[in-house]
Design a protein around this nucleic acid. Sequence first.
DNA 1: TGATTTGTCTTTACACATTTA
DNA 2: TTAAATGTGTAAAGACAAATC
Lengths: 475, 475
Amino acid sequence: MPINSFTDYPMSWKPDRDALKRPLYRSLALLLEHDITNGFLAPGTKLPPQRELADFLDINFTTITRAYKLCELKGLIYAVTGSGTFVSANAARSITISKDKISNEIIDLGFVASFEQSNNIVAEAAKKVTEKGYLEQLLNYNDPTGIPHQKAAALNWMADFGIHADKDNMAIASGALNALAITLLALFEPGNRIAVDMYTFSNFIEISKLYRIKLVPIPGDEHGMLPGELDNQCLQMDVHGVFLMPSCSNPTTVMIPDYRKRELAAVIRKHRLILIEDDIHAFLSAGIMADYGQPMFQLLPEQTVYICSTSKSICSGLRVAYIVFSEAFKEKIVKAIFNINVKTSSLDAEIISELILSGKASAIAAKKKQLAESANRLFTEFFPQLPRTGHPLSFYRWLPISDDADGTHMENYFLNKGIRVYHSDRFLSGASTRDKYLRIALSSTNSLEELQRGLAILSSHFPKLIGSRKNPAPL
Amino acid sequence: MPINSFTDYPMSWKPDRDALKRPLYRSLALLLEHDITNGFLAPGTKLPPQRELADFLDINFTTITRAYKLCELKGLIYAVTGSGTFVSANAARSITISKDKISNEIIDLGFVASFEQSNNIVAEAAKKVTEKGYLEQLLNYNDPTGIPHQKAAALNWMADFGIHADKDNMAIASGALNALAITLLALFEPGNRIAVDMYTFSNFIEISKLYRIKLVPIPGDEHGMLPGELDNQCLQMDVHGVFLMPSCSNPTTVMIPDYRKRELAAVIRKHRLILIEDDIHAFLSAGIMADYGQPMFQLLPEQTVYICSTSKSICSGLRVAYIVFSEAFKEKIVKAIFNINVKTSSLDAEIISELILSGKASAIAAKKKQLAESANRLFTEFFPQLPRTGHPLSFYRWLPISDDADGTHMENYFLNKGIRVYHSDRFLSGASTRDKYLRIALSSTNSLEELQRGLAILSSHFPKLIGSRKNPAPL
DNA sequence: TGATTTGTCTTTACACATTTA
DNA sequence: TTAAATGTGTAAAGACAAATC
């Protein structure tokens, strides 16, 4: 006899009994996948509990578990013990963000570029590098993790952020995301769990999906992830790592102050987590923000993979990021670099090195900070009513909205108005929250003037969007 | 009652009953992993059958299955239905091959470089590119899969090999291995099976391990993989893809002739496999070898991911490879590119494009072919007794040996003699075979003279190595 | 607070396919 | 050729843990 009478309370999903073939669990997963991707089951829908569906189909409930698990691994659904199983917010679409072509008419406030106005300085450096006599020696397979003098330049660059490491404990990768892919492949296994902010870097969500790593969303406040919440989750389940962007979180613009870094470090140490510290925004905080303190790598050198990309601070088109790691991780990371990249282009790394050693990199970073400051000032002029939280030099803003419209619809609405923005659903690492945001990139237009036009369009539609929201919810 | 009396025939592995903790399967897997990595269980050792070990430990045999499965996913062991479970040949060590530092005294016949003597031409092209006015425009996030004119150059280059495709069905990646990583992450899932030659590209073995993809070794002959054997394996188990290097297989130097390509294509079509065609050596075969025919991509355009790296043909230090794919794979591959690379360095791709469009790339490739011919001639002079099989322009040779010494020992033996070579164990995709080989790189020395010195050392130790082997076994 | 709901993990049972002798 | 040996795949049972009311 069924425990729950499914005739009284109709189930949200009633798969066709006759469509089930053997193996049952695969067949059931396929039916579910089909119904989700074809829109019969909307994001957020609560699926029938495992036992209820099992009774309905007259099979064992652990077979349902297996079918649900298949779909969960694909990111289509997520399950919460005690609450139920739900269709993911981003089930039916990819949230990968890239600078793919949009019409020239559209102002891009979506993808976060890096104020490309200073690329002429980089172009000059490139020219200088190719005139050097030793260029030929960069064009072979040698030094797969980076040429010693390039590593010296890298350490030089990172020293300003508070990183002190040895050449043997670092490597050069092809950009931050490449470094993240290397780290995941090197140190984690499919099925492992990594703790992240409720809203986090969308491409990290995607690459975790690709590698079948489960993300565990941890609540945070205006100073970042809450140590107590992280501790709780680690006590409750086997968590292997944690991903943080302490200098300026993407997309929330939160900077983790020193006191919070220390609290988090204590929890991370306690649970022996691997910390993946993406410090792409170090140049916006180190030596600028009062309570920056130091990278968490310095607090947890044995457990941290520190990643410092030059895409935002120096140049986005030259694919260079530095990975710093302890002896414990060295062999695995270097091996993963060989296996994913063979080596990183020495030419790109050489140009970045030239920029660093000549001091031009600092000048470029200073210029970008200046542009970021102007852009943020402009944003505040358009949205004076917003509370002044978040990083003052961030390349993007995190705009609370009250409209309950579906994320895709809202993005399309603004596309029709002539601007591209990204909805907070794209950055959700787990279940939906009732609070919605838009991420507004400030660094992707060709000029401040274009940004101004974009923000004007945005703000003209904004009053309707903030609606009744008085107190922006915690991040 | 035990079916097999384990008291009469002692089991090769007797885990300590008392060391078992709950969960049993994990605990058991850890014990096994420990005993393998610490050398208590030598490569090739047959483990106790699942039922026998289960009787011994007094638990259900499927719990042993689970424990064995964990170790199999890590590449520590492999199982053959009907025969048993065995410790992998490469269980205890990494077989990743890279151009890491070896002493300057040692002549490198191990890692396959690409006759770097022509890099001065590349350096000139680099200089020319940096003098172009539009360099600045290459230094941003735009066109993540490649700039249109670079793609045109790519298609131009590949047309000589028989590839005809559209710009929208190709992308630029950071080298062949990066393209392979992208393909695996995009189109396969952990646990999937890919058919490969018995001996195959070692870094492909490693990246498959990282991504928990199982390799299914398929026997071959002097014309490559045997279609009948591939068909058999696909009938027996669920195989998702097949990896081939038709123009010149690494490490066996086999070129698959046109008739065999067609036979294989028929089997691949029949089982709807995804073909990963690594055609890094196309420039050595297309238009040169009589029975080259065409890339398999042209035979199976819907099911093939065609990868064409320029590392061997043009320049190894500029990380550029082209991926060609059908509409069916497009979305997934492009998404994986965004997630692993964000984008590939436009600068590297631009220099390669410049070389292609100016005709210098062809000149470089011609020079490398000439050097390869000389190197192969030199090799034949040193080893006249060897049958003339394999590709005549290969950048490496595959040398049958009869010595039964362990692979690592043999490599170290030659290191002590002053040369680095790689033993066939590194290239084993599955079980050990009784036939052993050395892979001898011809393209990594700084000069033919240095190669000559290296081959002299090798050949002086060779008579002892070939020993009694009369008929080299099939590849 | 304590019972109930709900999902997770481990182990067992069993039918089946392949290999080997 | 058949029987035994051996690994694989699916399903079910049950103990457990978290969330909810």
